[in-house]
Amino acid sequence: MIPSDEMPEAGTVADAPRGNWVDSIAPSWSRPYLRLSRADRPIGTWLLFLPCLWGIALAANLDGFRAWDIWLALSCGMGAFLMRGAGCTWNDITDRDIDAQVARTKSRPLPAGQVTVRQAVVWMVVQTVIAAGILFTYNATAILLGIAALIPVAIYPFAKRFTWWPQAFLGVAFNWGALLGFAAHAGTITPAALVLYLAGVVWTLFYDTIYAHQDKEDDALIGVKSTARLFGQNTLKWLAWFLVITVSLLSLSVILTLVEQDRPLALLLGLAGVWAFGLHLHWQLRQLNPDDPEVCLRLFRSNRDTGLILALFLAAAVRL
């Protein structure tokens, strides 16, 4: 819950960083739309973008980086921004009545009356069309994967209505970039890429359970399900298991990619990146207080650094 003396200024969103660029320098007419896209909270774009980088770097460990990979990285970043924006807009359209009942979300543009549903739908379509233009520069396998990604994106907002595991549905959608990035470089999907994707799904269970603890009181009042409510006082134990499973799957993905290439230094560096990733998750566990929303939000945001650690190590391993 957000205390009344800490409610956001008129027009801003409660959980957006204060002084963000949308609130401070974006044209006033554009702000409601940028807030629909969560442009004032870039962490979601990072969490969608990082699995793309993992996929590109893992695939490059098979045959090296190419000039094309510069475009892949840049375009995946643009695509992550656009598709995260479209997905968040869709989420806000479907959740507008629920958001109006939750302290953290009732200041979002739709429940706050800053935009109409019709305007939000048009904005969602615009973002999706631009993202499609980027996607169609890729190979056929990546294009098909990109189109298929729309299915979990469409389903996710409804998951909290029928399952205690909506975070798993978010993981399925948010880590699709691991498959797409790998396929955009390699033109195919290998078992290692699938394992990388599954690792990302479990990682999402870790960080989004932390995030969901911010809303658990309001969620209980209105009947919205989440892993935060499901795990309750056992959250730390569940997160520890998610950590172990994520690190194990990432290690397996690196081994499957590099063990037969006679590149021992690359293998060691890739595994070092996985363990550095795991240490960062362990640090989050030690810092976590599930009953402190500010701590939950800070640790959730720190997962940008967690994902970057792995991406940098995998990219460095390509050169060895």
Rank of each mutant, 00 (worst) to 15 (best):
I2K: 10
P3K: 11
M7E: 15
E9F: 02
V13K: 03
V13G: 04
A14Y: 00
V22H: 00
S30W: 13
Y33K: 05
Y33W: 12
R41A: 08
G44P: 09
W46Y: 09
L48P: 04
P51G: 04
A57F: 14
R66W: 07
S75V: 12
S75K: 00
C76A: 15
G77E: 07
G79E: 02
A80V: 05
G87M: 06
D95N: 05
R96W: 10
A100L: 02
A100Q: 07
L110S: 08
G113M: 06
V117S: 11
W123F: 15
Q127G: 02
A131H: 07
G133K: 02
F136T: 11
Y138A: 14
A140P: 09
T141Y: 14
A149M: 05
V153D: 07
P157M: 01
P157D: 00
F158K: 11
F158H: 12
Q167G: 05
G171D: 02
G177N: 00
L179W: 00
L179T: 09
H185K: 02
I189S: 02
T190L: 15
A192S: 13
A192M: 03
V195G: 09
L198G: 10
G200T: 02
G200D: 03
V202C: 09
V202D: 02
F206C: 02
D208T: 08
Q214P: 04
A220H: 12
G223E: 00
S226K: 06
L230F: 15
N234P: 01
T235N: 09
L236R: 14
W241F: 12
W241H: 11
I245T: 07
L249Y: 01
L250M: 12
L250I: 09
I255L: 12
V259D: 14
V259Y: 13
L265K: 12
L267R: 08
H280S: 03
H280T: 05
L281C: 03
W283L: 04
R286L: 13
R286K: 15
D292M: 05
L297Y: 10
F300N: 01
R304K: 14
L308E: 09
I309G: 04
L310D: 06
A316H: 07
A317L: 07
V318R: 00
L320Y: 13
